[in-house]
Simulated scan of single mutants.
Amino acid sequence: MKAACIENGEVHVREFADPEPGKGQALVRTHSCGLCASDAHFLTGGQHIIDLSRKMGGPYAALDYTRAFVPGHEYVGEVLDYGVGSRRPVATGRRVTSVPIMRQGGAHAVVGFSHDCPGGCGELMLLDEDFLLEIPDGLPDDHAALIEPLAVGLEHARRGRPDKDDVALVLGCGAIGLGVIAGLALAGVAPIVAADFHADRRELALRMGTHIAIDPRETDPYGPLPDLGGKRVNLIYENVGLPGMLQRIIESAPFDGRIVMGGYCMEPEPLYVFAAQNKRLNIQFAGGEEPQDMDLAMRSIADGRIDVTPWLGGRIGLGAVAGAIANLSAPGTPVRTVVDPRLL
């Protein structure tokens, strides 16, 4: 099969042997795959991520940074076959996505960050049959590829135990922050405040359901908000992942405030426990999505409750993956660029 791979911090397009499914594994032909910031992190800091996983426990410990692996964990594809002895829960020819985890056939890996389970930047993937989620007819491939990133935001949103009386603040309006906003809106939380430096992302936040979108350089998101009659936020979602964010939030949060840390910070994060204790703060660390979040994301996109169309940018082939990953954080870039590995 053809695939775009990461090797020693560079992206290449190469031929790989077709993966062979074992028991409990589905062989899937990829239709669409979204490019995520975590893919870009592996170009510049992949060895650091692997080292952290080996030292502290994490899903990337088995990766060898000098060996090629095929990225892509936001995908939709067509079931071609199963390994011998599989349950075969979804008929061949049907489209599926999944939580990007493989636990069958003796493997335990993150799809797209594994030498054994290539991701959606290749023509073929192996998926765990227990996690397959069948895509309804009529849902376009590119929209289906956004189920996984939306599901992460929905997971983060529910980790905060949102209540209709909360005033929520979402810091950072990339894909995860936008998903958090969508999840809060589904839960009936109002008002929702979003903060981001970039005007285009603030506009997207408004389209996803936030009530106020502010530039934190101009308006203090933790202070009395004039547009809310002087109310302050009490439920804060961090989706930035930079060192210093948690302590800044602790200093600014109200008494009995709740903080959900969704940003993926891989640097030391100093904080004063004293400050958090004095305010009786609850700090929740959010992780990846679970099957329930994938199901809600799929149903919400399919029935129109969440419109992810504004997230979509260009559709590219394998030859354009290197340039697209290198520019994921450039100003004005779309929330998601989608790869069709059937195209060169």
Rank of each mutant, 00 (worst) to 15 (best):
A320E: 15
A107P: 07
D39I: 00
M245E: 04
R315M: 11
E129K: 09
L146Y: 03
C33Y: 01
C33R: 00
A190R: 15
E267H: 13
K2R: 15
L242T: 01
V193A: 04
N234Y: 07
L206C: 08
D128V: 01
L312P: 05
V338L: 13
V308S: 05
Q284L: 12
E289K: 06
P100V: 00
G177K: 00
I49N: 07
I214A: 05
I283G: 00
F255A: 08
A107S: 12
G287M: 08
P216L: 10
D200R: 03
I135A: 07
G77S: 08
L344R: 13
G45H: 15
D215K: 09
L35H: 01
D166L: 07
T66V: 03
I135W: 11
V28L: 10
C265I: 08
L228Y: 08
K279A: 06
G244L: 06
L328S: 04
G105N: 09
A185E: 13
G57Y: 02
T210Y: 10
A297Y: 10
G93D: 06
T309P: 10
D256F: 15
S300Y: 09
V335S: 02
A302I: 01
Q104E: 14
I236M: 08
L133P: 07
F113D: 00
P140R: 11
V260T: 04
P341Y: 01
R202N: 05
C173G: 01
G177A: 06
